[in-house]
Simulated scan of single mutants.
Amino acid sequence: MTQLSVLDLVPVREGGTVSEAMQAAADLAKAAERFGYKRFWVAEHHAMEGIAGGATSVVLAHIGNATSTIRIGSGGIMLPNHTPFQIAEQFGTLDALFPGRIDLGLGRAPGAGPELQRALRKNLHQAAEMFPQDVLELRALITGDVDLPISATPGRGAQVEFWMLGSSLFGAQLAARLGMPYAFAAHFAPDHLDTALALYRRDFEPSEALDKPHVMVAMNIFAAETDAAAELLATSQQQSFVRLRSGNPGKLPPPIEGYRDTLPAPAQAMLDHLGQAAAVGSPASVRAKVKAFIERTGADEIIAAGATYDPEARIRSLELTAEALGL
């Protein structure tokens, strides 16, 4: 059976605060644990007023304290923004606090303009070129399988599960070469989905951590009692996508009836394109769409994205999805 997990960006809604977003994330994680989801991941984004997960390891500590069994992790840490040693310490600390529950998903895209580069005191494009070496160094700092001149404490010996994230062929190739599980971000970048998964499976080299390919794919899932109700819920995230692609990001807006009909053709086409990795509708509709997506991708796991303006609606969406798919 394909397992289900949750991806959360810790959205800050219009009229809301960061503190409220943090509490909503904890409530969502507790609900996901109760409904039988396997993982709860938080993604690293910076300098975006509508996303509060920038200090990802700190947010994960908050989530860990609110839960007891669900795996928690990064989806992902953008390693070029950091040093391997810092991340080894942070995730070693998380493992010490929440033993056997920590996932470390790693991404390469710096996703930053010159202002963020200056703020982080990093040449992020140069750091991105070092990504494969930094992944190896980070893994060695935690596993101790390579003798390094410095030891991360906390860090060394931590039972952290490493994941490679990606939305292009680069991450698929690296995950295959290093024998890591691979998570593809189809929820916002589906273009290379089929090619990347085929390449990963074809070129996979077994490692001590993983003996065969393991794929997780992200998709947007909005479930409600009716198709119309779910489509309305989804308009908050749709508005955020359109604003982001238009260079005008902001806080998560409330849903709008008939939103798509107000958009110009290019914006509608963009949402249609993203819709190939989405399941929006009643439980029966969501079940059919998720099963079709699993059949297409052969995914071992699906991780559900999908921010809603009302946090309770996201919890209800996870509950309906879990019931529809037999968790």
Rank of each mutant, 00 (worst) to 15 (best):
L106Y: 00
E137T: 06
G113N: 13
L94E: 08
A127K: 05
A112E: 09
G107E: 01
G111Y: 06
L136R: 13
G100H: 10
P114G: 13
Q117C: 09
I102C: 11
V135M: 05
N123R: 07
L124G: 15
Q133G: 15
A109G: 08
E89S: 08
G111C: 08
G111D: 07
A140Y: 05
E137K: 11
E129F: 02
G111A: 07
A140D: 12
G92S: 14
L104V: 10
L97D: 07
T93M: 14
H125G: 15
R118Y: 03
A119G: 05
E129T: 08
G113T: 00
R108M: 02
A88C: 05
L94R: 01
G92N: 15
A109N: 15
A96R: 12
F91T: 15
R108Y: 12
G100A: 12
G92W: 03
D95K: 03
L138F: 08
A109E: 04
R118I: 06
F91P: 15
L138C: 09
Q90N: 10
G92A: 09
V135K: 06
G100S: 11
L138N: 13
F85R: 09
N123L: 10
L138H: 12
I87C: 04
D134G: 06
G92D: 02
R121T: 10
Q90L: 04
L97S: 07
L116H: 01
T83L: 01
P110Q: 10
E129D: 14
T93G: 13
L106M: 02
I87A: 08
L120A: 04
Q86I: 14
L94N: 09
G100D: 12
E129W: 01
A96P: 01
H125L: 12
E115P: 00
G105K: 02
A96L: 14
A128M: 00
Q126M: 12
Q126S: 11
G92T: 06
R118W: 00
F131V: 01
L104P: 15
P114I: 01
L106G: 01
E89F: 04
G111R: 13
Q133N: 13
P99E: 13
K122Q: 14
Q117K: 02
L104W: 08
L124P: 14
Q133F: 00
R121L: 13
G92C: 09
F98C: 07
T83F: 06
R101Y: 06
F85C: 04
E137P: 13
L138P: 14
A88E: 06
E137I: 04
G100T: 08
R101D: 12
E89C: 09
R121C: 14
G100F: 02
A109D: 15
L94A: 10
I87E: 03
G111H: 06
V135F: 11
R118C: 00
K122G: 03
Q90G: 00
E89H: 05
E129A: 15
Q126G: 10
